[in-house]
Amino acid sequence: MTRNAVKATDEAVKQGKDTQGTDKGLARRDLFRAAGLGVGALGAVAAGVTATGGTAEAAPAETTSTGYRETDHVRKVYEVSRF
C-alpha cells in the first residue's frame, strides 16, 4: 500500500470512533483496498473455493439437545484428510 494510504488510515484511527461502520471501520476497509484486497479480485476462483467439493467445508459444530438430524452436515468442519 502507499505511504499516503497508511497515513490516511492512521489519521482515521487517531480521530477514531469505536465501532465498526465508524471511522475505524472505514480505515480498515481503506487498508484492505489499498493493499489490493478488493472485492472481486478473486473472481471465479472465489466461487470455486466456496462451492461444495472445491474446498473443505465449514459448518457449525453439533450442539446438545438439537438432535442428530443434521449431524452429517453440521459436524463437518473441515476435510484436510486427503493426504
Binding site: F32, L42, V49, T55, Y78, V80, R82, F83
Partner: peptide, 20 residues
C-alpha cells in the same frame, strides 16, 4: 460486509491450496 467477505474468500483459497 464486502471486504470481510473477501477476507473469508482468501482464507478459503489458502485452505483449499494447502489441503490438497
Amino acid at each position: 460486509a464486502e471486504e470481510e467477505l473477501f477476507r473469508a474468500q482468501v482464507y478459503a483459497l489458502l485452505a483449499r491450496l494447502l489441503a490438497r
